[in-house]
């Protein structure tokens, strides 16, 4: 039991993940994030920009890391994204939540399901039953074991990326990874 310095993703990217971009991309960017975290909202704008620019070359993955004590709305918002995912609309809800980060009360979430054209009754049932709680907790724990130490935390091709994540810097890091 000695010191560990390299933080590697201990949960490989699989079909259970929410992915954007080609599965056979040479570079995979995994983000652990929290829907109520203001830094994650900034990161979301960066992700949207990069998703637009690099969508042929990079596979983007999002996993939940709700800091529940710090952000009381983060857990249910994560479950809402998972409930939308069960109806095939993960990224739509994901983007919508970050674009409405200041309104994450339960009635807001139900309203977003309606706005996005989801089956609202089914969505409401999923949240009421806590159907996606376990999934969110699995993401949270495998993130912790992989060395997630804040939100957002990024992994490029399975190794934690500790650099700046403004769009130009992160883009350069992804392009470096493409060349390797």
């Amino acid at each position: 039991m000695s010191q560990t310095s390299v933080n590697d993703l201990n949960q490989p990217v699989t079909e259970r993940d929410h992915t954007y971009g080609p599965a056979d991309a040479s570079v995979t960017l995994v983000e652990y994030g929290d829907y109520e975290c203001p830094y994650c909202e900034q990161a979301h704008r960066v992700m949207k920009e990069l998703r637009g620019e690099l969508n042929d070359e990079v596979q983007f993955v999002f996993r939940n890391f709700p800091l529940r004590q710090m952000h009381p709305h983060a857990e249910l918002a994560a479950e809402a994204a998972e409930a939308a995912s069960a109806q095939g609309a993960f990224w739509e809800m994901h983007d919508h939540l970050y674009e409405h980060q200041d309104a994450l009360e339960r009635e807001d979430l139900d309203g977003y399901a309606a706005e996005l054209g989801l089956d609202e009754d089914e969505f409401v049932r999923a949240l009421n039953e806590g159907r996606h709680e376990e999934r969110v907790q699995q993401d949270f724990l495998n993130g912790a074991h992989s060395g997630v130490n804040a939100t957002p935390t990024f992994f490029i091709n399975g190794t934690r990326y500790d650099g700046q994540w403004d769009a130009p810097t992160l883009r350069a890091a992804l392009e470096d990874a493409m060349r390797q």
Binding site: M1, Q3, T4, N7, A144, H145, S146, G147, V148, N149, A150, D162
Partner: peptide, 20 residues
């Protein structure tokens, strides 16, 4: 049973504690 010193500017995360 386990000790770890992190660079002062780096949050060491929780993985080392959980593993220990």
């Amino acid at each position: 049973q386990w000790s770890y010193v992190s660079p002062v500017g780096v949050n060491p995360g929780v993985d080392g504690i959980l593993d220990a």
